[in-house]
Amino acid sequence: MKQISSRFSIAVHILSLIAVSSKDCTGDYIAGSVNTNPVIIRRIMGMLKKAGLVDIRPGVGGASLLKDRDQITLLDVYRAVEVIEDGQLFNFHDEPNPECPVGRNIEAALRAEMKEAQSAMEQRLAQVNLSQLAAQFV
């Protein structure tokens, strides 16, 4: 079963760590907290920087938030790390049998339901900001 990329949870972890940390959040420090390779952290940090959520100081300077914690929603993070391809959370299987009544109609029957489910999820993510989440870590 294909899952949504872990980039989202890693990105939220990174931003939460920056939000609550009293020390410089270097790539190595963040990688230690996430328990993953620093290369993955750098890649995701680049996405967060491109989205205008973090500032990255070269060398041992670390990273900082570019917006207040209450101005960064989980939806912002979700969009920043491009969790889904082509704006479609759900994919359809390739080439169902057009001779079968289910095969030729399944995509049309499910498309509206899937779009509504994605919209509901995105609305929920928009309701939670980094400040609310970070409050659970201190």
Rank of each mutant, 00 (worst) to 15 (best):
K67D: 02
K67T: 03
K67W: 10
D68W: 04
R69M: 11
D70Q: 11
Q71E: 11
Q71F: 06
T73G: 06
T73F: 06
L74C: 10
L75M: 05
D76R: 12
D76C: 07
V77C: 03
Y78E: 02
Y78F: 15
Y78D: 02
Y78V: 03
V81G: 01
E82F: 14
E82S: 11
E82Y: 13
I84G: 02
E85H: 13
E85V: 13
D86Q: 14
D86S: 12
G87R: 12
Q88G: 11
L89H: 01
F90P: 10
F90I: 10
N91R: 15
F92R: 10
F92E: 03
F92M: 10
H93L: 15
D94W: 05
E95T: 15
E95H: 12
P96Q: 07
P96S: 07
N97T: 08
N97D: 15
P98L: 04
E99Q: 13
E99F: 06
P101H: 03
P101Q: 01
P101L: 05
V102A: 04
G103D: 00
R104Y: 05
R104N: 06
R104W: 02
N105L: 08
I106G: 00
E107T: 11
E107H: 09
A108C: 05
A109Y: 12
R111G: 04
A112S: 09
M114V: 07
M114K: 11
K115T: 13
K115C: 06
E116F: 14
A117Q: 12
Q118N: 10
Q118Y: 04
